[in-house]
């Protein structure tokens, strides 16, 4: 235990931020909660419905399936992007003009807006003019994202991996850059294998950036909207309809504000729980490590 005296007055410094967040997030969220227990036509004509919307939302098979698909999607992209990102970061050159060139190349996909990514891949996968669609078809595979759910899934995952692996790679790259040379020298003196260097030096030092990377990627992928919307429109059928798209259809397409408010709250609670679990788990791993170190 440390015996520092904490001065909590520094907390006042976050007051402006708190006000901003209250204005942009907390007050709107409170409004969403208010909407979720009523049937609102306008501010004067509204009826209290209690938990009816929640009951309906939780028992809606379409939404349950969307939730399952959402989890499947998020965990699949995380499982691919994190190892791949680490691998790319390890392979990136460390100094000289090559380092800058590779950095720029790797960053490129990140700079493309979501709906543009969707459009690019929409064209890319077309059977008549798209290189990938045409190529796969010529190779004898009946590739069609508007008919086959497997193709649609594969393409969306590939698209997300293409778009967001660079984020993980960049974070890991910066994490790797911050490891002092002394560690590597010590490893060389010990004749540590490359695997041992990765396992006992690089990976532990990457934990911090990986926490951020995994959290960001989880939240991003859990809220994914524009890319599948442009690429597949949620189809074929509803095989790639994720949560945010169901929510948009409900809230904007059908103007069902009450049910979509209830849905939003459930969505929010899921994200809150998963992020908290991730964060706590990884922070505690680190704490254990520090205690063992001292």
């Amino acid at each position: 235990m440390n015996h520092k005296v904490y001065n909590n007055r520094a907390w006042w410094l976050i007051l402006p931020m708190l006000l901003l967040v209250a204005f942009s997030a907390i007050i709107p969220l409170m409004t969403v909660v208010n909407y979720s227990v009523q049937d609102v036509f306008d501010t004067h004509t509204r009826f209290f419905t209690g938990v009816e919307w929640f009951e309906a939302t939780l028992n809606d098979p379409a939404l349950q399936m969307a939730l399952l698909r959402q989890f499947a999607f998020s965990f699949t992209v995380l499982a691919i992007e994190v190892p791949l990102g680490i691998g790319i970061a390890l392979l990136m050159p460390k100094r000289g003009w090559q380092a800058s060139a590779v950095l720029i190349l790797v960053t490129m996909p990140l700079l493309i807006p979501w709906n543009v990514v969707g459009s690019i891949w929409q064209i890319f996968t077309r059977g008549d003019i798209g290189l990938m669609g045409w190529g796969l078809r010529e190779l004898g595979y009946g590739y069609n994202i508007t008919r086959s759910a497997t193709d649609a899934w594969g393409t969306i995952i590939l698209m997300d991996v293409w778009h967001w692996t660079p984020l993980i790679a960049l974070l890991c790259y910066s994490g790797l850059r911050s490891i002092p040379d002394a560690y590597y020298q010590a490893a060389r003196i010990d004749r540590a294998s490359q695997w041992a260097v990765f396992r006992y030096i690089q990976l532990p030092k990457l934990t911090n950036v990986l926490v951020i990377g995994v959290l960001l990627r989880f939240m991003h992928s859990f809220m994914i909207y524009a890319e599948p919307f442009v690429l597949t429109g949620g189809g074929p059928g509803s095989s790639t309809t994720f949560l945010s798209q169901s929510l948009t259809t409900m809230a904007i397409g059908q103007q069902d504000l009450g049910p979509s408010a209830a849905f939003s709250i459930i969505y929010f609670l899921i994200i809150l729980l998963v992020c908290w679990v991730f964060y706590t788990a990884i922070m505690n791993l680190q704490k254990d490590k520090q205690q063992k170190g001292t």
Binding site: I27, M30, T31, V33, N34, Y35, V37, Q38, V40, T43, R46, F48
Partner: peptide, 12 residues
């Protein structure tokens, strides 16, 4: 515009 109800007010 926040369409408050008694129960949500009590909650918050």
């Amino acid at each position: 515009w926040m369409v408050w109800t008694t129960s949500t007010a009590i909650f918050f």
